[in-house]
Amino acid sequence: MTLLKEKSDEQKDAEAVVDDFRQDRGPFVVAAETTRMPMVFTDAKAPGNPIIFANDAFLALTGYRRDEVLAQSFNALMERGHPESVEAIKAAFEGVSASDPVIHYCRKDASTFWVSVFINHVRSQSGEVVQHFISFIDLTQHREEQAHALMLIEELNHRVKNTLQAALSIVAEAFRHGSDPAAIRASIESRVYALARSHDLLMSDNWEGAGLHDLVETALEPFTDADGRAGRIEITGANTPLTPRATLALGVAFHELAMNAVKFGALSTALGSVQIAWASKATPEGERLLIDWREKDGPAVMPRTRKGFGSRAIEQGLAYEMGGKVHLEFPSTGVACTIDIPMPRRAGHE
């Protein structure tokens, strides 16, 4: 073992001290070796502060073998980290930093991690620092969680602002097109509830978007519960996981279609029914989602001359948000709406 031959007398002495620990306080050394907290001892008196003990957790954290760190200078090992980390470690050794440093360090394989470093000085009876006891807490996962939390907060902030803006636009729109206070209030309430339901759908899946079947059911829920309409609405299709954008856009579209059906279409009479079905289709441009809304046995619906918020939200909205084609037709058999959009499937779902 060439390594052993290169050891200085000081190192040997320092290792002897650790061996003494093992002899005298066996359980404590076993604990140090087996704990999941990475730990090293260094020889404070030898040049370069060589490592004289490294536990398994330290080797697991850094990716080095024991023989690659033992007798190596701790300071040199630390210099493989980021420059500011090296400075922070130096300051901690000299006792000039007020808090325990958090450093960004490189593993043997050059991947990086964040650790909090605790440096304790081991003193002899005369008070001289003979060893450094250095332990680490791996903060990598914590850092990643922090970054994720920040991203979520930013996303939340964005959505809150846009939601408030949408609420103001709902109010402005209702007043621009109505004069009857009751109708204005009903229009505002119904659209604010629709907005709330879309956000419920997003929330239920950590804002990652909802499933298409869940979305359609939720959007139609306020219209199916009342007046025994449940049996007259038929929903056929898979619960395809959608992107958040598609969840909101389709949520608004289905709400507007349902509201229109209840006011003027198939759900405004006792006999009419609605069939909603969808399927995916492979095309040379990629997978597409084809959604079909078909009303039956209702009164003939006249296309409204003024494009209201509802039909704009359906026709322009979906086309705009999703890059798709929407056809809203008013044949005498009942309203028919076909939606043809690029499959808004979430990443990670096949």
Binding site: Q165, S169, E321
Partner: peptide, 8 residues
């Protein structure tokens, strides 16, 4: 990029 806001 928000449909409702753009529409408003």
């Amino acid at each position: 990029d928000d449909l409702m806001v753009a529409d408003m």
